[in-house]
Simulated scan of single mutants.
Amino acid sequence: MPRNAGASKRAGKDPNAPKRPLSAFFIFSQDERPDIKKKSPSLSVGDIAKEIGLRWKNVSDDVKKRYEQKAAVEIQKYEVRLAEYKKSGGVSSARGDKAAAKASESKIPASKSKSSDENSDDDDDEDSDEDEGRIN
C-alpha cells in the first residue's frame, strides 16, 4: 500500500469557485482546433495538440499579441468574479481548517500510536526476532 494512501494534503476545491482564465495559448488552441479537425479528422488528440503547438510557435507576433490581449481581458473578468465570490463568503476558512486537521490526524502512522507499554511486552515474542533485522 502506498505511503500516503487515502491522505490528502490539500483541501478539496469548491465547485462554486470561479474557474481560472485561459492563457493566450489555450484561447488560440480553442480557435485552431476545429480547423485542424476539419482538415484532418483522423488525427489523434495528441497529434492535434502537436499541430496547435507548431502553429502557435510559428504564428506572427501580431497574432500572439491579439491572443494575449484576449487573455488579459479574461484575467480581469476572472479577478472580478473571484472578488465577488470571496465577498459573498464563498471561501470558507472553517472548511479548510477542518480538512487540514483531518489530514494532520491521518499522518500519524499506526505503529507510532502504540503505547510504550505494549512495545515493551513484545521483546520476548517471535516477531521481535524478525524486527531486529529490519532497518527503520
Results as ranks from 00 to 15, higher is better:
31 D>R: 11
32 E>D: 05
34 P>D: 03
34 P>V: 04
35 D>F: 10
36 I>P: 01
36 I>Y: 04
37 K>W: 01
37 K>D: 07
38 K>I: 00
39 K>G: 05
39 K>C: 06
40 S>I: 09
40 S>W: 11
40 S>G: 02
41 P>C: 09
41 P>D: 08
42 S>F: 07
42 S>Q: 14
42 S>D: 15
43 L>G: 03
44 S>T: 14
44 S>F: 08
44 S>W: 03
45 V>H: 11
45 V>R: 12
46 G>W: 07
47 D>Y: 03
47 D>L: 13
48 I>T: 11
48 I>P: 03
49 A>N: 08
49 A>Y: 04
49 A>D: 05
50 K>I: 12
50 K>M: 13
50 K>Y: 10
50 K>W: 10
52 I>Y: 03
52 I>E: 00
53 G>M: 10
54 L>C: 08
54 L>E: 12
55 R>K: 15
56 W>K: 01
57 K>M: 11
57 K>E: 06
57 K>T: 09
58 N>L: 09
59 V>I: 15
59 V>Y: 02
61 D>E: 15
61 D>Y: 11
64 K>L: 14
64 K>F: 11
64 K>I: 15
64 K>Y: 10
64 K>W: 08
65 K>H: 15
67 Y>V: 06
67 Y>T: 01
67 Y>P: 00
68 E>T: 13
68 E>V: 06
68 E>I: 06
71 A>Q: 05
72 A>E: 15
72 A>I: 10
72 A>G: 13
73 V>I: 14
73 V>W: 05
74 E>Q: 12
75 I>E: 12
75 I>T: 06
75 I>L: 15
75 I>W: 09
76 Q>R: 11
76 Q>M: 09
77 K>Y: 05
78 Y>P: 00
79 E>V: 04
79 E>M: 12
81 R>G: 00
81 R>E: 09
81 R>Y: 04
82 L>P: 00
82 L>N: 01
83 A>F: 04
83 A>P: 03
84 E>M: 04
85 Y>G: 01
85 Y>M: 03
86 K>T: 09
88 S>P: 02
89 G>I: 03
89 G>L: 05
91 V>M: 08
92 S>P: 01
92 S>G: 01
94 A>D: 05
95 R>E: 02
97 D>W: 00
97 D>S: 03
